[in-house]
């Protein structure tokens, strides 16, 4: 069971973390919306694996964390692609 505040925190952390920042960056690398979303989603998938663990404990990353991370990565990729369309002619 995940509380609303917990959900909000997880979403915010994903936006300011790798899925949000790198997601926008990879989205800006292409004009193809599908590729941008896929790359963003991939970053979202990898981010919990890279940053989600802890050096001191072995707590499994929950499916909810993965889902939020992938969702934010995907959206960030689309935002990055929109920036590319709006701000670049190539």
């Amino acid at each position: 069971m995940i509380s609303f505040l917990d959900l909000l925190g997880t979403i915010g952390a994903s936006i300011i973390g790798l899925p949000g920042i790198i997601g926008v960056a990879v989205g800006m690398a292409t004009r193809n919306w599908v590729v941008a979303a896929a790359l963003g989603g991939l970053v979202g998938l990898l981010a919990p694996m890279i940053l989600g663990g802890s050096h001191s404990t072995h707590v499994a990353i929950t499916p909810m964390e993965y889902a939020i991370s992938i969702g934010i990565g995907l959206l960030a990729g689309l935002v990055g692609c929109a920036i590319r369309h709006k701000g670049a002619s190539v």
Partner: peptide, 17 residues
């Protein structure tokens, strides 16, 4: 406050309460 970045940010956001 966790040390790991994403959990740290999560804790900070939740601390708004």
């Amino acid at each position: 406050v966790p040390h790991e970045w994403q959990y740290k940010i999560k804790a900070k956001i939740m601390a708004v309460k």
